[in-house]
Every structure is written in C-alpha cells, then in structure tokens.
Nucleic acid binder design. Sequence first.
DNA 1: TCGGTTTGTATACGAGTGTATACTTACGGC
DNA 2: GCCGTAAGTATACACTCGTATACAAACCGA
Lengths: 189, 189
Amino acid sequence: MEKRTRNAAATRQAILDSAATAFTRHGYDGVGVREIAAEAGVTAMLVNRYFGSKEGLFAEVVDTVFAPPTMVPNDPGSSVELARSTAEALVARTAPGAEHLDPFALLLRSAANPRAAGIMRAGIERHVGARFVANLDGPDANERAELGLALLAGVWLMRTVIATPGLQNAQQQQLAERLSEMLAVVVDP
Amino acid sequence: MEKRTRNAAATRQAILDSAATAFTRHGYDGVGVREIAAEAGVTAMLVNRYFGSKEGLFAEVVDTVFAPPTMVPNDPGSSVELARSTAEALVARTAPGAEHLDPFALLLRSAANPRAAGIMRAGIERHVGARFVANLDGPDANERAELGLALLAGVWLMRTVIATPGLQNAQQQQLAERLSEMLAVVVDP
DNA sequence: TCGGTTTGTATACGAGTGTATACTTACGGC
DNA sequence: GCCGTAAGTATACACTCGTATACAAACCGA
C-alpha cells in the first residue's frame, strides 16, 4: 500500500491498465470492478467516477487494446511476407508457456456477453479492419481481411484458451508454415 | 404450466435440453440454474439432484452437443469434397438470420470460464478430434484437423458472435469458395 | 490562512448467484 | 388399502455483483 499521491491522470491510467490485463485474462464477465480497482490500488467507486460504469471502462479498454499494431506487422513488404510473418508471430505468441496479452484474448473471452460483443464489434471495425485491409490489394479486401482474421482468432482459441493437444504439441515451424499457407489464400489473391 | 406427471427420465432429459440451448445461447456464465430449471418446468434444486452441480450439468451438455456429427459430413467422399461441403455447411448455418445451435456457440461463449474450458477440452478430444481425423489421410492428421477446426471456429466467431460487417455482407457462395480453398490446405496435403 | 474544488473512501442497498437442509406429495409393490 | 421410497418443492444461507449516496481529506488559488 504505497502512499498514493493525488493525481487524477495517473490514477485513471492505473485503472485502465489494470482493467486491460484483467479483462484480457478473464473476460468481461470474469472480473469485477472491485478486483480491477484493487489491482490499481484504489476503491471500486473511482472506476465509476472516471469511466461512468463498467461498460464504459470496457469500451475504453477495447479502444486501447485494439488500436496498437499488435496483430499486423508494421512493414509487411510483399504479401507473401505478410502471411509468413503474421503466421510466425501468432504461433510464437501462442506457445504453451507464453503470457497472452492479446486483442484475441479480449475478443474471445468477452464474446459471450452480448453487450461486450457489441462494444468490441465497434472497436474492431474502427481499428483492426482498416489496418489489415490497408495491406491487401485486389477485390473484396474487406471480406478477405476478416477471413484471415477469423483464421488467426480460431487458431488463437484452439492453442491458448482450449489448449487442444494437436495444436499444443505441434512443431512450431511446421505449424507456422501451414498457417501461412492458409493465410496466403486470402492475402495473395 | 402443464400438470407434469412424475417421470424421472423425462424430467432429466428436459433439464438437459433446456441447459443445452441455454448454455449454447448465453455461455456457461451467462445462465443460472434457476433459469434452466424454469425452462424445463421444474425447480432449480432438481438440477443438483440429477447432475450434482452446475458443472456436472455442463459436462453432460458438452458430451451431447459435441457427440453428433454436426460439423463433419457423414460421407465426405473425396477430400476436396470434404473441404467444399464443410465450408458450404458452415457458411449456410452462420447466415445472418439463422438460429445458431452449434457446438461452436457453446465453445466460444463458454471459453471465458477456465473450468468450463477444461470440461470442453475433454469433450472435443473425445468426440470431434477423433471424427475429423478419421477423414484425413497423410501425416500430422491430428494437427491438420485441429487447424481446420480452428479456421471454422474463427469464421463462426466473426460471422455470428461478433457479426463483423465484412463477413456478414459477403456473397455466400464466394465466401464458401474461399473458405474451402483455405481448408483444402490442411485437408488435401 | 482561508475556502472551494477536486480526489478519494466508507457504507450500504438491492438484486442475483450456486447450493444445502428440510419439507411435501405422488407413485408402485405388497 | 397401505406405506416406503422416489420425485419434486420451499426456504434459506452465504456469498458476489454493480453502483448510489454520503462523507473525509488533500490540493491550490486567493
């Protein structure tokens, strides 16, 4: 229990950080505001003061989690390279022992709650869709981008949340290779 | 409120049916035992009498939902045909207005709860994995099967739960075609 | 130094959770 | 017809949840 100096901006950020990790790890319904607040070193009611409600806090978390370029490499180069590097990044980040602080985790673990799902749909549309599409040429870029995203989300689900043995024990390099082959179908038209 | 005749087997089944739809629609944490029991026309405590606990009930639901051959066609014929028919079936069943009573729904909407996820992992291993693998030739059948399953699950997530606009508005036939192309990578080695 | 505004806390409320205990009621074999 | 057993209900307990209300204290300009 540090002697917290009064600082609205810092406190707000602390709550936001705590919420991001908590929501990502346990899903929208999996954490309470008391838990989030305690991790930030404050009381539950400050959450409501700064974010209006739990839903308001979640919306802001979605914005911050989906905004950064975590899922799409910054300079993909060729489209084949885009598929390859994306596949490798995903495989590496979903390795058995790794800590998963991903947009995917937030997506999958909060999808059960309809209101949370709605908030996330808006966030995905705003951030990820546009970013991914920007790297694709050819017709139906939007549809193809989301198809690729769907593949990544599904693999994420199987490897980390469900921890299905086949994908869990697969050779990483071989898995990445096959994954990039599948991605190539939509990335390289 | 029908005058329910005393019948243990029928009541048990009614609870199981009610639970299957409820868990599928709202996820493990999204429904209470009172709700499930009411839909079956009984009291919450009968759930515990027949299934021990909410978790026990969920485990049995997982078994019944994942067991039938809903995701893999019965007689796939050639492997190309397997990819094509699987893709078309998924696309059709995830069409915007359709009612989604799928293993995928159960999977995704209950994945947030770690205990529920554990129960489902066991169910998937027992039922789906084996079934899907049986239709695949070549090396790494297990890994490839789960990779295909991951793609299906991801598309399911994007099209139904999140209702992402790109996949929501896509031409069904074109979408199925692209999906089966991606599936072919793992189905046809 | 004073006083108002901002930052934070304490307490409590009402609703909802899973389930344990104790009770009532209907059925089927004698 | 009787009665033990099985089927189902009622009540209550011990939580947890999100949040509204009321209060205390630190900061800062005057």
